[in-house]
Amino acid sequence: MKTKPKTVRISIIGFGNVGGGVAEAVRRKREEIERRHGIDIKIVGIADLKGAIVNENGLSEDAIMKPKTRRKPEDMTSRDVIKEIEHEVMVEATPTNVENGEPGLTHIITALESDRHVVTSNKGPLALEYSRLMELAAKRGKELRFEAAVGGAMPIISLVRENLAGNGIISIKGILNGTCNYILTRMAEEGLPYEHVLKEAQEIGIAESDPSKDVEGIDTAVKLVILANSVFDMNMTYEDVEVTGITDITPDALKLANDAGYMIKLIGEVDRAGGLKVAPRLVPKDDPLNVGGTLNVATIKTDLAGDITVIGKGAGPIEAASAILSDIIRIYS
C-alpha cells in the first residue's frame, strides 16, 4: 500500500559551506528519502548576504546553482524569505557568532514566530539564548533541532535524548573540535612544534586564518554549553565554562605523554553536577577517546547503559548536511 508522500518545503538561510551542503545532500538523497520516509523535500527559498531566490513550487537545480538569478538583498531579505514564503522548515546555516548570536538568532526567532520548524547548525544562538528559544518553540508547537551544531555528522544530541532515553546521564566528555585534534595528532606523530603544524593546517584548510576560536578552546566550550543545556537541562552560557586551549602544548610534552602511554587531546567535559571544563588532558592510548586526525569523539557515561562512545567526522559541508537532513526527517517521523 503506497501513500502519497508528504511534501516538506524548506528554506536554507545562509548559503555558505553548510547551506550549500544541504542543497547538495537534498539533491542526492531526495528520491531515497521519499521512498524510505515518505517525505518529499522541496527547497523553496535560499537566502544569504548576497541575495535571495525563491519559488514556492520548489527551486530547480539550475536556479540553486546560479547565484546571478538571485534577487538583491534590498528587494528581499533573509527575514522576508522566512516570513513570507510558505514553508514548513527553516534551515539556519549562517556562521556562528558567539558575541550576540546574530544574524542566526533573529532568523530562528522569526521562523518560530512564523510557525516554522527550525533546524540549525549555528552554535551562537543556542549557546546564548537556549532556554528562550526552546520556550518560544514550545509555545508555537514547533521543533527546534540542532544535531549539526555539536559534533557535525557524529550523532550525540538525538542519541542521548532519544536512543538513550530512560538513562540518567552522568557525564559527557570528548573531542569536539577537529582542528585541535588534527594539530595535536600531527604534533605527536611528527614531533613538530605547534606553530609549524598550525601553518600546515591553515594551508590545507583545516584551520582558519584566525584560528583562535578553535585553538583557544572557545568552539569546544560553546558546544559544551549546548550539550549542558540540551542534555542536562541546565541554563549555562559560555561564561560558565573553565577554558584552556592547546597553544601552550609543546612537542616535548607530547613525547613525555607518549612515553607514559598517553596522548594529549583537547577534551570538553560536562557532568551532571554542573562542571563544564575544556582543557588539554592525558588520554590513555587504549581509551576509545584516543582518535586521530580531524575526528570527533564523545563518551557518554550513563547509569544503565554504562559508557557509550561515538566517533565521527566533526566538520565538513556534507557531514553537517547529514545531521541536518536527519533532523528534518525526524520532525516528520
Binding site: 601552550d248 609543546t250 616535548d252 613525547k255 613525555l256 612515553d259 607514559a260
Partner: peptide
C-alpha cells in the same frame, strides 16, 4: 621525567 629544551623555552615533565 623532565624534558628541557633551550634555556628560555618552557620545559615539560611527566
Amino acid at each position: 621525567s623532565l624534558s628541557m629544551p633551550a634555556v628560555d623555552k618552557k620545559s615539560a615533565a611527566s
